[in-house]
Design a protein around this nucleic acid. Structure first.
Lengths: 234, 234
DNA sequence: ATAATTCTGTTGCTATGGCAACGCAGCAAT
DNA sequence: ATTGCTGCGTTGCCATAGCAACAGAATTAT
């Protein structure tokens, strides 16, 4: 690993487009990064960013490359828990949890550059109480709240016991009103997300298509009878 | 509803024991509450605290009584989502979510007193940048992070497809190392939490008892073969 | 173009777990 | 004591969904 002070990263478009720095730009952002003691770090493929069981003091914003979060169970098997590409914020919830120890280790999936933002500096604030710092804290709490709702949504799907209901609820959410939409994930990932067997998912989707509830090709769906789907979603 | 400025609530032991005000006491707490513009409000039974579909500007700390959060679906059915007694913090995640609208309405289950804490005042901070204020913000983010992990844990249980595995994982977590422990919830609530049929849960527990994996009476459990249970939990 | 590989759909078999219905124990009200 | 209520355990039935195995698209590499 190879650390350096920020500076060049100012040109990085990730910063301006990521939620954590929303509403902070130009000189404010520059000053804030210095004040935070933010440091970029470069990792070669398979280098470790966070170790399992360790406390997490800072979150990492992925600037380029990608990281994987993996759990290792009692039997010593490694399981992929998450994959984070450019723009992703990693360890934010964990660093905000009092006494929180990482349940996973995080490893560079390829050559990766991240920006480390230490919790203490974010919360402590600069002596001058600058508005950028206040905004950053609001953004951080907003990011965590959003992750909370993402989990809650998935929990809602999994709490539906019937396969059809689970699918209906998920698709209605993803559609967000529009008739035709693309999920952007493979059938297998969809099955994993909904915690169902892939072939069972395909079978049920085929049935729903046959009954005229929806139409689809690969990951592109069109909801034909939202009325009925809503009924199925309970 | 009947609002009043804080003041008398300083004697309330809820404040000193709740996570949100951890590490803040005495004069600091008093000053902080004034600075926040915190207001207690009293609600008669069945009075509404938060309406569904409305933005949430403040969280409510339940001082006495209790509230219910209920969702109303498309068919007009009301479903109990959560029950919050004294010490509970309600609406904290929601007020922290940018543009977040309440998915539920919150209603007083009985005569209830709450302390309202507005998000803007919490995050804005007082002009003097007082340490109590900073601590409050840290506590808030910590509370939200903890709620995140509580969801995540439940998600982990629900993602285990076999009933036995789900039970095993849950009980191993609840045991927290000790052999004998009490869940403090009814069998029916346990079934709801794990999203399984109550009778199926009873049946599987009976099987597990017969196989010597565990023993139980009502909501008190003893794990006899954690080794095997861990294997079942995958 | 051909081959290789990954992704998706299909289908038969079967175990699992949801459902309903009932019995019993504990507890409170009358 | 009787009645009612609630919580928990038990069991038979059977639909649902997991599993495995294969087939055919679609995509990528050669």
């Amino acid at each position: 690993m190879h650390k350096m002070k920020c500076g060049f990263i100012m040109e990085n478009e990730i910063l301006s487009s990521c939620g954590l720095f929303a509403g902070i730009k130009g000189r404010d952002l520059e000053k804030l990064l210095g004040c935070l003691g933010a440091e970029t770090a470069h990792y070669d493929k398979n280098a470790i960013l966070f170790r399992a069981g360790q406390p997490v003091q800072a979150c990492a914003l992925v600037l380029s490359g990608a990281v994987r979060a993996e759990a290792v169970n009692a039997a010593g098997q490694h399981t992929l828990m998450a994959w984070h590409g450019p723009g992703a914020l990693v360890g934010d919830v964990l660093m905000s949890t009092p006494g929180g120890l990482s349940p996973v280790y995080v490893i560079a999936a390829e050559a990766t550059t991240v920006l480390f933002l230490p919790f203490r500096q974010i919360m402590g604030g600069c002596p001058e109480c600058c508005p950028a710092h206040a905004r950053l804290r609001e953004n951080l709490i907003g990011e965590i709240a959003q992750k909370y709702w993402a989990q809650r949504r998935r929990l809602a799907y999994l709490s539906v016991s019937s396969l059809r209901g689970r699918i209906a609820m998920y698709l209605l959410d993803e559609a967000k009103g529009s008739a035709t939409f693309s999920l952007g994930i493979s059938r297998e990932n969809m099955a994993d997300y909904l915690c169902v067997n892939r072939s069972a998912l395909s079978r049920e989707l085929a049935r729903m298509k046959q009954e005229g509830l929806l139409d689809y090709y690969r990951d592109t769906f069109r909801l034909l009878d939202t009325e009925a789907l809503t009924r199925w979603a309970q």
